[in-house]
């Protein structure tokens, strides 16, 4: 199977100048990222703030221009477009295929545009429809996300957070995309609304054969929605694996740390917890030499401090990890083998 999207050696460097005559600091937000997104799957990118997951999403969507590396998109077998090398104009048609959903439903909708215009805007830009057809397509997109017709003439502030997020999804869907990048799309929502949106995203995926790149910091949500997971730390992908494999037996110590820290809505599991990981995420401009995680890793040895591990397949399997000792260390997964305690298991 060919990947719908392939990211190769993607690097993004930001340079910041302190003051007018100050030194230029360069921050490597993404270092040599390699990823594949298969058609029809949901690939989750997880990590803590500053790990580069949002930057990665924006480089793929070309909201940011990558510093080096390539992003190639294969809409059908034998037809591969290297998105990262296209000019803005050449890119425009492909923007229909790759759409983005944003985290903050308040700031991602133009407060001065009505719902109709918000959803119609992509169609107008790509000159795909006008008049009655335009209206019909807007209404049908809103219909798919469960926004009623009488909302067309209202401004976004008249809606609750969940409804605004639905409108944002309608904006993405109206162009019949192939790949949807959801950047923390449910993080700002209350749990009950979050559940509605997660169900909606799932239904849309089935109905329209979508592929998701699901960027999130919430491992509970990721376990629920993703087929495969890529874990990022300080601009590196440290592990990728099928969701169940990753949660069952993580191969990178950072993945274990993330799973350990995840609060689980079951008080009976409190006792099984390790002590939380020590230390803080280092500053990007001050990335440790060797393995980026060695400063906080409980398995760190001299090798880790000296030599940067490559992302490599573990035991030939579908799991990839960037850890020198991935095969040998015993890491704890997140699934609990004890029978579920709640009535709502």
């Amino acid at each position: 199977m060919t990947a719908l999207l392939e990211v190769e050696n993607l690097t993004k460097t930001f340079s910041m100048r302190s003051g007018m005559f100050g030194d230029t600091i360069t921050l490597d937000a993404l270092v040599d990222i390699n990823l594949k997104v298969e058609k029809g799957e949901t690939l989750a990118i997880v990590g803590e703030s500053g790990c580069g997951k949002t930057t990665l999403g924006r480089c793929i969507a070309r909201a940011l221009d990558p510093t080096s590396g390539s992003v190639s998109y294969t809409p059908e077998p034998g037809k591969t477009i290297e998105l990262s090398s296209l000019s803005k104009r050449e890119l425009k048609p492909w923007r229909q295929d790759i759409r983005m959903i944003f985290q903050d439903p308040m700031s991602s909708l133009n407060p001065y545009m009505r719902v109709f215009d918000l959803v119609a805007e992509p169609l107008r830009i790509h000159k795909l429809a006008r008049g009655a057809e335009l209206e019909q397509r807007v209404v049908s997109a809103l219909d798919k996300v469960g926004i009623p017709r009488d909302a067309l003439q209202r401004f976004p502030h008249a809606f609750s957070g969940g409804q605004r997020q639905r409108i944002g999804i309608a904006r993405a869907l109206v162009l019949d995309p192939k790949l949807v990048i959801a950047d923390e799309a449910v993080s700002a929502l209350d749990v009950s609304i979050q559940a509605q949106i997660l169900n909606l995203l799932e239904d849309l995926k089935t109905d329209f054969g979508l592929t998701y790149l699901f960027i999130s910091h919430d491992l509970g949500v990721v376990n629920y929605i993703a087929d495969r997971v890529a874990v990022m730390y300080l601009g590196h992908v440290v592990e990728t694996a099928p969701t169940e494999a990753l949660f069952e037996r993580p191969r990178h110590p950072y993945t274990e740390v993330l799973l350990e820290a995840l609060p689980i809505a079951d008080p009976t599991r409190r006792a099984q917890r390790h002590e939380a990981v020590k230390g803080e995420i280092p500053f990007l401009g001050n990335r440790p030499k060797g393995c980026p995680f060695h400063t906080r890793c409980r398995f760190a040895e001299d090798k880790c401090r000296a030599e940067k591990p490559e992302l490599r397949p573990i035991n030939g399997g579908p799991t990839y990890a960037a850890c020198h000792f991935a095969e040998t260390i015993e890491l704890k997964g997140a699934y609990d083998d004890a029978p579920a305690t709640g009535t709502y298991a």
Binding site: A61, R62, A63, R95, R99, N110, E121, P122, I125
Partner: peptide, 22 residues
């Protein structure tokens, strides 16, 4: 830096359209 401006750019809008309309 507002998301809705990024969203408009990702829609494929030209700079002119982004400025004038959004």
């Amino acid at each position: 830096t507002e998301d809705f401006v990024t969203a408009a750019q990702l829609d494929g809008a030209s700079d002119y359209r982004v400025i004038v309309r959004h």
